[in-house]
Design a protein around this nucleic acid. Sequence first.
DNA 1: TTTGTATGAGACCAATCGGTCGGTTTAACC
DNA 2: GGTTAAACCGACCGATTGGTCTCATACAAA
Lengths: 195, 195
Amino acid sequence: MQRMQVTGLELFYRNGYYNTSIDDILKELSLSKGAFYYHFESKEDFFIQIIENLLVRKMYSMLIEPIEGHENTLDLITQCFEEALETAVHNEFDFGFVLSNFISEFNGKNETIMKHLNDILRIWEVNLVSAVQRGKFNGYIDRHVDSEGVAVYLMSSYIGVRTLMVETAPSARKYRFMSQLRQYFKSLEPKTTTV
Amino acid sequence: MQRMQVTGLELFYRNGYYNTSIDDILKELSLSKGAFYYHFESKEDFFIQIIENLLVRKMYSMLIEPIEGHENTLDLITQCFEEALETAVHNEFDFGFVLSNFISEFNGKNETIMKHLNDILRIWEVNLVSAVQRGKFNGYIDRHVDSEGVAVYLMSSYIGVRTLMVETAPSARKYRFMSQLRQYFKSLEPKTTTV
DNA sequence: TTTGTATGAGACCAATCGGTCGGTTTAACC
DNA sequence: GGTTAAACCGACCGATTGGTCTCATACAAA
């Protein structure tokens, strides 16, 4: 059952949800339809369980927990993005950002699943916002900065660069992205001109 | 035939390529299979023609031509993004950024189509790079700025925010995004401290 | 050994897919 | 009116889809 979910996520990620048949997954595992429908109600139910069990965990470990510390927020985020992108660069079978790929696929087609995906997005956003607020409180970020704005901008750029890194020069694009991210972050630091 | 392409793009955009059957398109137009396969070799050929005829044109008119002038580059890009996002906000049937949606869908599945999509991406990138270079030449952008880096960062953030604007508070997210974009642009302006 | 239950196998189903093909309509030209 | 070719119709095909159903196996408790 755990194996089914892991393999399911792999194939759904690689080929998309609608373009991956249950038979594909079962063939990979040498299992039968009977085994599948004994454990899961439907393909949709199967996918939702994958989201809840695997995708959420992955998001936490890669993009949320790494920025939870009390050190310099901007450094934490920089390092977090750096590592996440580096993982993608070295992944031979990278097909973009899992979450945003699924959002693109289900948007306007399956409201139930979209709700689950948006939940994850919101968790990410909330954590980014409070990280920025922490940074302001600790004096690493100028206190006039709009925390929600920074969060949206960070999520946007990350989602986008992961799409751009698909297939065309991922390493170069990662490098350029990170260097501009640092440039942007510099503009968020407290104005030293303030007395 | 033109009608077929327009309707085809509409449905492919709304439901995805693999999730839209030829019958769906023909039903919408009250046409038959015969009519379709008289004009197009296959579903793939049909889609590629749509890309070449409609998608490329759309990209040019919305994201490339508006930034081609010789005024302040950063202003041009700001206004261009502003208008593109505003269009999305007011579009009742917005399903994200057409180009990046298709990239997500075809990535790793159809190399032929991916080549066409990447072509469009590269055209966009080239135009952004030369816009930034123009800005440096005209004194609107600091000459130490990395043009390619800015281009990648701009494309990333645009692609990402279009994904984020899907379904959840598009207007608020657009506003926050634009305001952070301006913040970022400010950091690209020439350092007045230079004598 | 018998029974009960958890787990799985795989034939089967209706619906749908992209694509084919023989035939019909339409309209322009001689 | 006859000819031709572009445009279109729709029945049909084999393959595949998500899902159901019946039946087989495994193993622990009685």
